[in-house]
């Protein structure tokens, strides 16, 4: 059993040095230069909300919407946690961008053969036992890599150690069924641009409720439609037959009449 990996991002410890973005761009071969928001060339970015830096990136949901909506299965959820995108499969429908509850995926709008771009959780590094480049680069420990269960425990320990320092919530434990990126904050999350209206159930469940009814619709629909056709067709046939009989009788009668005459 592979242990689920995660990142714990403690917003109180972030000094906004941007080392995470620099390391990320280097390891992913993206063009250099600081960017203040997510883009097709920035898989992570520090958004300033007052004096708090909020590190944005793909949340690597436990049950990701993008994986469920992609018609060609270009997105996969690896056992370790990373959600990966395979550009060779992508047809460019952008349903992933539409469906992502965190508005993370970015599109190469300027390209004529565009890709969806987002954080890969340094999947290859994680698989070989290393930590993601951003966690390694963070000088203050604001971004910490580890097992998801361990990090959740640590988050609560930090909250208990200094009561009143943090708001009473670890963002990412329950949101849309849980994510691989966990946040601790001293400022209420809704003031930092976090989506706080998200459900605690995984969003693909909504779709599955409808999709799972398809076999039933096909079976019942097929039988129902054929049944209606059989009944209405039979009715028409009977009517036609009766009419035939009547005309035949009429004829016979007429024939009799003429013979009598």
């Amino acid at each position: 059993m592979v242990t689920k990996k995660a990142l714990l991002i403690d917003l109180t410890m972030c000094i906004g040095c941007n080392s995470c973005q620099e390391a990320c761009k280097k390891v992913n071969g993206l063009p250099e230069g600081e960017e203040k928001s997510l883009s097709a060339t920035a898989y992570t970015a520090l958004e300033e909300h007052g004096d708090v830096f909020v590190r944005r990136m793909c949340q690597h949901c436990v049950d990701p919407s993008c994986v469920s909506v992609c018609p060609v299965g270009a997105f996969t959820k690896t056992p370790e946690g990373p959600v990966l995108y395979d550009e060779s499969k992508c047809i460019g429908c952008r349903y992933c961008i539409q469906a992502c509850p965190f508005q993370v995926p970015r599109y190469e709008w300027g390209s004529n053969y565009p890709r969806v771009q987002k954080c890969r959780f340094c999947a290859e590094r994680v698989k070989s036992g290393l930590q993601p480049a951003c966690a390694e680069a963070c000088p203050t420990g604001a971004t910490k890599f580890g097992n998801r269960d361990d990090l959740i425990r640590e988050a609560y320990e930090r909250m208990n150690a200094e009561s009143g320092k943090y708001v009473n919530k670890v963002y990412g434990i329950d949101e849309v069924g849980g994510t691989s990126i966990l946040y601790l904050s001293a400022v209420p999350f809704e003031e930092l641009g976090f989506k706080t209206n998200l459900e605690n159930t995984a969003l693909p469940m909504h779709t599955w409720n409808a999709l799972s009814k398809i076999p039933g619709v096909v079976a019942v629909g097929g039988v129902f439609l054929y049944g209606i056709w059989w009944i209405t067709n039979r009715r028409n046939e009977v009517q036609e037959y009766e009419r035939q009989q009547e005309t035949a009788e009429d004829r016979a009668n007429r024939h009799d009449d003429s013979e009598q005459r």
Partner: peptide, 26 residues
């Protein structure tokens, strides 16, 4: 016109994701 990679539209025929509504619609 709308698809970013229209020439790969046929992928929907061979690359299945039965979880996806878009797959079913396609």
């Amino acid at each position: 016109y709308d698809l970013g990679r229209p020439l790969q539209l046929w992928h929907a025929i061979i690359m299945w994701n039965p979880q996806s509504v878009m797959f079913e619609v396609a």
